[in-house]
Amino acid sequence: MVPFLLFLISQLVISVIAIWKLIWKEENSRILIIMLAGGVIGLLSKLFVIVMGLEEDLLFSFSSTVCIAPFSSLYLKNSLSGRSSSWRTLLIASIPLLFSLLLFIYYLIARPYGMHIGAPQTITQHFRDVVLFSSLAFDSYLLYTYRHTLQRAMQHPNTQLGISFIIHKVFLSTLFLLSFFNLSATHFFLYTGLSSTTIILGLVIYFKIIRDYRPRNMEDPSSTPAKSTVKYQKNSIDNVYLENKKAEIASLMRKENLFLDADLASADLANRLDISNHELSIVFNYGMQTNFYQYINTLRIHYFLDHIDQIIGENKTILALAYESGFQSKSTFNKYFKQELGLSPSEYLKHHQHSLKAIKS
């Protein structure tokens, strides 16, 4: 039991550190914070049961699954829709957590006085299973609803993390189903389930802490301003050649919509034009007074604006259309949109809808 105790304590420490790191992340991380907080409560309840010498009641301790399952579904929904959850939605998702906490509090009160705990223990176990399978059903609904934009959304780390949560829940549900047929192995499944909590903690740390880290010398090239044209002024540039390449680029973008490829790089465009990457930089910096990323993302914004009525007519989300326009992340899209129009996407959409209503009236 000592190794298991050390395992719980180490998980507890890592979870607290992860929560502290996530506090400074974007708004969507508040869901992850609640999930990890639920995990901390679960670890503390198990730690309490072990310290009190009540190992036989481990299954009655607070199950972090009732917190992780619904909030992971909510996280996936936000990642696919590009919208943040309201506090009301978060409160509704917290109902299973609060109910499970009440059952554990009843156990803490009933156990010392020798009160009957058999029925609440059964309720705790089955309630956990109901929450888990309901969450998986909702995940299936989300994947079906956003099936048309899922492939592009999968390029974003938030969606990748949301899908990882689904895999985690499938793993847990498989263990719980097996436990019905092998009741003598209940504690084995409990320990395996606890190890899966380590997996989900590792996923959060990887996707939201390690992967989000960017050293200063490895900044996203899309955030790099256009290079100064001074360094190219000493080059012998044929203006006719320069204009021809500008026309070729415009033609490629107009006919083939290359900018819709989220993985498009300057080297890819240089290969299509049969010139070096350095020559392409000269065309952009000296001939267009911009850089590759600024040019491509501006075209993506224009494509988004040309198709913005799909958000209204086809009930498509802003983020879904942004992905279709070639953007890989919500932050990059918002940055270039505001840079181009001076408004956030949601603000612009409101103005656009008001304009349409005014025209119709």
Rank of each mutant, 00 (worst) to 15 (best):
I17R: 13
I17P: 01
K21E: 14
K25T: 02
E27G: 00
I34P: 00
M52T: 05
D57N: 14
S61P: 01
S63L: 04
S64A: 15
L74G: 09
K77T: 00
W87R: 07
S94D: 07
S94E: 07
I95D: 01
L98D: 00
L101P: 00
L101G: 13
L103A: 14
Y106N: 10
Y107M: 09
A110T: 05
G114I: 07
F127M: 10
D129Y: 12
V130D: 07
L132M: 14
D139E: 11
D139L: 03
S140L: 14
M154D: 09
N158L: 12
G162R: 06
S164Q: 11
I167G: 12
T174H: 10
H187V: 04
F189N: 01
Y206N: 09
F207N: 06
F207V: 03
R211N: 11
P215K: 09
N217S: 08
S228A: 13
V230C: 01
V230D: 15
V230L: 14
V240M: 08
V240L: 12
K255D: 15
E256D: 15
N257V: 04
F259A: 02
D261Y: 11
S266L: 04
N271G: 08
N271K: 15
N271S: 15
R272D: 02
S276R: 01
F284G: 04
T290Q: 09
F292M: 10
L299W: 08
Q310T: 03
I311A: 05
E314W: 00
K316P: 00
I318V: 14
A322Y: 10
G326E: 02
N334I: 03
Q339W: 10
E340M: 06
E347N: 11
